[in-house]
Design a protein around this nucleic acid. Structure first.
Length: 224
DNA sequence: GGTTGATCATTC
DNA sequence: GAATGATCAACC
């Protein structure tokens, strides 16, 4: 049976510490789920497995994983050297009704205000069941980190508001990037076009670049 | 080898 | 379609 929701940040963190060092095969067995052959068709499997173990309310609710604690859970796939293997999805980017949007109340800032990062071994050469959970850590952005995020966010949002979304490259941004986020390439949503008209475009999401999450890992494990 | 755009499952 | 959880894999 699934653990009850944690009642405090400390309790949540203690539970996540208890997962460290365990393999995904062990954790799957405890949860009573079978290991997929690969993640090709179940890309969120690891994240959902850890949610189960930590007592997160499952589902696709548009809120933090632990709303009563104000904490977002993020698994971070790492290689054998402890480097992130993937960018980290933050949230969908709003494309309409964004005039006057302020960093202070945007979803990027809200999502990242408090994050429980759980690194997980994810080298493709390592069979899924043998991958282990690494040491988790709680994080809130430093002033410097927030300044970087804010700068990228404001730049990207201004371009979106000005109708320049199709000119935005994923290369843009020091720490935050904008990329498609959808079921497939045919999914469409409304956005602002070059002449200010409403156009249809692929939904976009904000992602943390690996350089940023790598720095978080370094700071945590080197400087601690 | 790293990045960018595409994609998968599920729920509502 | 939009939200949750992300990784895949073609391409530069």
């Amino acid at each position: 049976m699934q653990p009850t929701p944690p009642r405090s940040e400390q309790e949540l963190f203690q539970r996540s510490l208890a997962l460290a060092g365990h393999s995904l095969a062990e954790l799957a067995a405890q949860a009573g789920v079978s290991l997929p052959d690969n993640l090709k068709r179940e890309k969120g499997w690891v994240g959902q497995l850890l949610e189960w173990h930590l007592g997160a309310t499952a589902g696709s609710k548009p809120e933090q994983d632990f709303p009563e604690l104000g904490i977002e859970l993020k698994t971070l796939p790492i290689d054998e050297s402890g480097r992130p293997l993937e960018t980290t999805f933050v949230c969908v980017a709003p494309l309409l009704g964004i005039a006057g949007q302020r960093w202070e109340e945007c979803s990027v800032r809200n999502k990242l205000s408090r994050v429980l990062w759980i690194p997980v071994e994810a080298s493709r050469t390592l069979p899924l069941g043998q991958r282990r959970v690494a040491s988790p850590f709680l994080w809130s952005p430093s002033q410097q980190e927030e300044a970087l995020l804010r700068q990228d966010w404001e730049e990207l949002m201004e371009q979106i508001a000005l109708g320049h979304i199709e000119q935005i490259s994923a290369r843009q941004g020091q720490v935050l990037q904008l990329r498609p986020k959808a079921a497939n390439g045919r999914a469409l949503t409304s956005a602002i076009g070059r002449q200010g008209q409403v156009i249809q475009t692929r939904p976009r999401g904000f992602y943390l670049k690996t350089g940023f999450t790598h720095a978080l890992l370094r700071h945590h494990f080197l400087l601690g």
